[in-house]
Design a protein around this nucleic acid. Sequence first.
DNA 1: TGTTTCACG
DNA 2: ACGTACGTGAAACAC
Length: 880
Amino acid sequence: MKSILIDGNSLFYRTFYAIREMSNSKGVPTNAIYGFVNILVKIQEEYQPDYLGVAFDLKGPTFRHLAYDDYKGGRQNMPELLAEQFSILKELLRKMDIAIIELEGFEADDIIGTLAAIGSEKGIETEIITGDRDAFQLVGPLVKVLYTKKGISQLEEVDEDWVKNQYGLTPKDLIDLKALMGDKSDNIPGIAGIGEKTAIKLVQQYGNLEKIYEHIGEQKGKQKEKIIAGKDDAFMSRMLGTIKLDVPWDGDYQELTFNNIFNPESIALLKELEFNTLLSKIDAAEVVETIEKKVAFHWIKTAVDMDNLFKDLENSNEVIIYFHEEVAQIYLALEISDRYYYLNPEAVEGLNFFEKLKKLPNINTLAITSQDLKNLIHIFHKNDINEVNEAFDTYIATYLLSPGDQRYDLKSAAYQYLNRTILDDEEMFGKGKKMVKAEGLDEQLLADYMIKNCETIKDLKTVLEKELHATDMMTLFKTIEMPLLEVMVSMEELGFKIDLSQLENLSSEFENKLTSLTSDIYELAETEAFNINSPKQLGEVLFEQLKLPVVKKTKTGYSTNIEVLEQLIHFHPIIEKIIEYRMLSKLDSTYGRGLMAFVEPKTHKIYSTFNQTVAATGRLSSSNPNLQNIPVKTEMGRAIRRVFVPSTSDRILVDADYSQIELRVLAHLSGDENLIDAFIKEQDIHTRTASEIFGVPLDAVTRTQRGQAKAINFGLIYGKQAFSLGKDLGISRNEAQDYINRYFSRYPKVQDYMENVKRQAKEEGYVTTIWGRRRYIPEMNSRNAMLVQAGERMALNTPIQGSAADIIKLAMIKVYNRLNAEKLEAELILQVHDELIIDTPQNEKIQVERLIKEEMEGAAQLSVPLTVDVNTGMSWYDVK
DNA sequence: TGTTTCACG
DNA sequence: ACGTACGTGAAACAC
């Protein structure tokens, strides 16, 4: 039998200092608890103990304090950040059903010593976990110490041999050792003037205090005097330093048994603490009690079953659907008024579920709830079901409620909102090579799993609806996010036509240039033994072989980024070649060859995925490939846009982008009359700003001044500080601060607004956009000043970037609906944050240009006008 | 899997 | 003494 005894106070201090500051989104500090729990997991796995107990010191005085007033004198109070975590740790241990042992008048050490002694009598092996070396005295044949050396990642196992090697003493000798040398941390005096070296020698020679004093005649000179003078201190120190093995504990050793430390109760608390990585690691089989509880359902196997399902659907207003996709197979779980159905849509011979669904009389009004509706709608569309009522997406709702989170999958949402542990696909079917493929699926298992998930969606919806109301985001959800889904589906399905042969030419061109640059670079470096693409190897060549000055370091080596390279340009001709190589290498790998891999051979189109639940500010994102970062700034990169063309030769691209939408949003949010005036007069905003801060008439603003004003304007949007503004402008921090001060004196309400946003973020914990989109900013209440500053910048930027995102989302919905309503063939195919692209038949050009301008400009009524520039052309390159 | 670099708004 | 502008995604390398 094995027992693990933990010195709770000691371990908690250790984990507190070993792990960087952490807190959950409510600002509760969690680092020490996190470390503690990780140790618990580790010992569970590695030692599989039969008994487990955590001993704590109590606040009151112990027998040692009563004997010696200054015992542990001079100790600092527990840091506040740790104290806050203490009661949570205890609560967690209680929920994990781990014994907590405390005894008035005694320290954790004494409790552990006693329990180890009891264990030894019973023949139980004990491992003591502590960061306190004092415990080494307890080591014996059945007792070892796991000492937390260096942080907490390594536990050193201390047994009798270890002590012998380290001190040349037995564990028991350590008691007398400490009696002689004392212990600063506990304020145990020992003998004044005797240090570790002498003390070890004495104990090795004589064994204990009694023997030392018996043979005191053998000592000489100063040392003898010190030992004699310190006799009382030595004996008292030994009493203080001796861990008790017989505290009056009236418990039963059986109290130290435990069951499952990860049970629904403890998991709920871990979830509150937001230990998500940990939670996902917990062996699914151990935690899932809920999954065992099966939900009754109808398995559609016959035509009669199918008829019953459709009768139910026909008489319903809403349905909840969970879907699971295998390679070319879809499985469905449905819920209608608490009745559950599972089906493989093709399972019934001659009766395809989707074909029947298409003919369902109420298919257009039946309100559908699902997790990740976008992909469900894709499935419907593939089955020619085109008009459905997407009512509620739990995925989007979860995202809206806390858009800074990492994941919004069903499992995470169930943890967070339902206190429920469910399995995800990976836990159910494995991943990678181990994955269970469709043919190997146990369909009963799959059905149970899917029905369970369907039930979870249903329960989630209830909670999420309540939460959306409580946070005033239901309108945002219903009028922006849900209607946008259909637009996203459409953009993904339409794709963007690519002139493939032109793309191939472009890529070859890049590659030819890269080949010649490569040989130039090798020649200039006088070696070919390095990979130019490797920052590490490149750094070695530049800074070690060529001995160029080191400008900046990264945490792993030399920095070789563009800023660094530009500073080195006059030191060596190789630098400009490297800069060009870098640019071309990026262009080819990401946009040349990179994009080619995404061109669908049949249609010559690229189908990007748009994600509505990624950006914390409310923006969309695009991936596989990302069409929102196609080059535009350099001519060579911009050439990539030539390959983005209308879908057919009789079409053109209509491109519309908002002018200065973020600064307009700032004008609106702040209500600053001066800023609003600039937009109402449709002035060039940077020129106007320059005129204000430099005190010159509009027509006297120089290019430099305009450029500086532009940097200030952008800096404002990002919450930039004087230091970096100065760096950008090549002026001192003080000068930059002076510009910012002048800006605020000309636009005072902007300053007020920013102060208010920061205050709100601090007080409420979140900021909002014009449409009430929220972002929580836990950093605002951190004790780390840098994190607070970062939080302030997020707080300042999010309402601006997020409101702009709200506006263009509204515009997309309006444009999409109007194109449909006017029965135009023009199609919205792309959004790039402030820009929309419509693939348009030539003959609809005028109508679409007018329509898009109207809808985008009319998307929101702000206190400044929204203006949109519209351009048309035969490629994305041509519309600028 | 994490780091570095760089493309966009 | 440090680091310093928000929000993304992708490729290549290193471990």
